[in-house]
Design a protein around this nucleic acid. Sequence first.
DNA 1: ATGTCGCGTGAAACGCGA
Length: 269
Amino acid sequence: MKIATFNVNSIKARLPRVLEWLEASKPDVVCMQEIKCIDEKFPAIEFEDMGYNVAVHGQKTYNGVAILSKFPIEDVRCGLDGEDWPDDDEKEDQARYIEVFTNGVRIGCIYLPNGNPVLDADQQNSEKYEYKLRWMDRLNDHAAELLKFEEKLVLAGDYNIIPKDEDCYDPAAWEGDAATLPESRKRYRTLLNMGFTDALRATIPQGNNFTFWDYQRGSWPKDHGIRIDHLLLSPQAADHLTDCQIERDVRGKEKASDHTPIWIELDLD
DNA sequence: ATGTCGCGTGAAACGCGA
């Protein structure tokens, strides 16, 4: 069972690239982030024509997540417990989490808040950074609850976390970024400490294995990338892990997303 | 280089988010 995650940076702008990638890579399940459209505008028919079932948690302009699966989809869940904006009920909740059960595997699709800029004008932690930390606490609470089921569980997506310095081309360039600060890295490590396996590091223990290259500053031709897209596996899922690959070539296409897909293979036979 | 994308607004160029 091949499970991929891909931050597409607008499914409307990316549809031809995504369809050709699906034809070539043939994942059984896809976790998609930053679809940037409401449910009604998601091109479900194009994916259904390729044999996928579709679950969408969309939002206009920003965010939005979806899961495609060649297998029947059950138990769709949208959003995490807890409030996005505990002090302000005027603000709209952000569509950053969708979860399904498919082919015996529970799969959560994550678009974790970016959190930059970290500081506001008064040099205090910004609302965006505080939101990121709060969202990670809510994710960790949910992950802990899911682990109790002792199922095959995969939490895949754009975590906006660079786990270690070796996961970026130049640690100095990312110092002070919300993806590397101790408070956010600590919350990511909490997931590992509760028993999740980082699939990439389980198969390729060290080295530069980037999944994102900024559109700016010629980051792609210079290979100035970072590793922020992760697949985390429960012990029951990790027992079946046979491979994990980053599809670098997708980033080099015309009209590419700034992220590239990463996938795992689970041997369930 | 504040360097590039994509979105929505509103009908072009700008502000926002990443």
